[in-house]
Design a protein around this nucleic acid. Sequence first.
DNA 1: TGCACCGAACTGAAAATTCAGTCAAGCATT
DNA 2: AATGCTTGACTGAATTTTCAGTTCGGTGCA
Lengths: 213, 213
Amino acid sequence: MSDRRTEILRAATRVIARRGVRGLRVGELAAEAGVSTSLIYYHFSDRAGLLRRTLDFISDRADHYTAGPDPAPRTEDPRADLEQVLLLELQDTVDVRENSIAWGELRATAVFEPDLREDLARTTHTWVHDVAELLARADPGGTAPAHAAAAERLTALVEGLSVRWHSGSLPVGHARLLLRGAIGAELDRHDPPGRGGPAAVAGAGSGAGFGRS
Amino acid sequence: MSDRRTEILRAATRVIARRGVRGLRVGELAAEAGVSTSLIYYHFSDRAGLLRRTLDFISDRADHYTAGPDPAPRTEDPRADLEQVLLLELQDTVDVRENSIAWGELRATAVFEPDLREDLARTTHTWVHDVAELLARADPGGTAPAHAAAAERLTALVEGLSVRWHSGSLPVGHARLLLRGAIGAELDRHDPPGRGGPAAVAGAGSGAGFGRS
DNA sequence: TGCACCGAACTGAAAATTCAGTCAAGCATT
DNA sequence: AATGCTTGACTGAATTTTCAGTTCGGTGCA
């Protein structure tokens, strides 16, 4: 909790959100954490190790982030719950922004560092899974694979909107509006015969499968 | 054309796609371009300047990428055109992958470097605009703002799916499937009674006000 | 006594950046 | 048509900067 070590990890997340993974200087991190440089090497093997732990930390935190201490929101209005959970990521508060930027950095970094991919894929998968469950509750008529696909789309969309937001291509408010619209498109869709609806998508399976190399 | 300078920019794009903006070493770039390190400083002020030019270059290239030499595909099947254009970005060929990764890096970098944002936003905007036009052709019944919103969603989704693909959370094939599904959801949506079609999503204010948050 | 920690000086290597100078093409002279 | 002058593209070899990582004497404290 008030562990010095995890305080460093927290500080690292903050620095990454401010400067990016590439921009993290262990000196600056030490200052941010209010700690000596040596302590960082005392607790972590080296910068790479620190980074790895930090990204794990971010990933872990993202897990408990949507889930929270309570198992699930589960009010009487499942659609509202769904919107709640997804829109959570598009809020202009320090905490959310910091978390969201750090998560984006994790993604971006993983493109060039295969070591990170496994954790990332796992966390992504549980997120998708959670959203799929909420979708199932909001749309009991649909099939499980259809929900899985929709969940993958919605979560990927959230990520896409987030980066646009943070890179200044899209105001948060507009992003939220768009996301609502997407939820609407997913839930209110009807499929004309012969088109690639949920059934067509189902063949791919539900997994956010781990990529091939 | 066979300008040495633009050859450096091309090489820089390749290196960025391989190592990331963060991982670009001007020495490695020089080797990749087959020139001396010094030439890079002859043509560009410094590493930052080089990066700036390169990212502009990537941005420019992305413009002409979807648009191509022809004004538009315009076959007799507008929906197929739309799918064509969007799925273009999710192909596992060297060129597309390189371009796509570089574009992702541009986005990710812009989060921490405000200088890049303007160009990025402009390019994004023209892309969205192009897609909106295709949507209008595929769905003549809808309103312009609705098409704009759908275009923003679809393009943001493409970006989201791309990073997942490149970061190993999602195989390309599955990404393509999901994207097709999203196009379906956007085009085949029907709105709850009392609402006036996709137009409801577009307006400012509460927009797609399904449910409250 | 041993653990967690400070802090500041220091090392080493990798990268960025500079610099003095070569090379070739043009171009005006005489 | 030989001469000298200029200029832009280019290089290789320094030089400088930037950091990660180390070391070590020292502090508080359980």
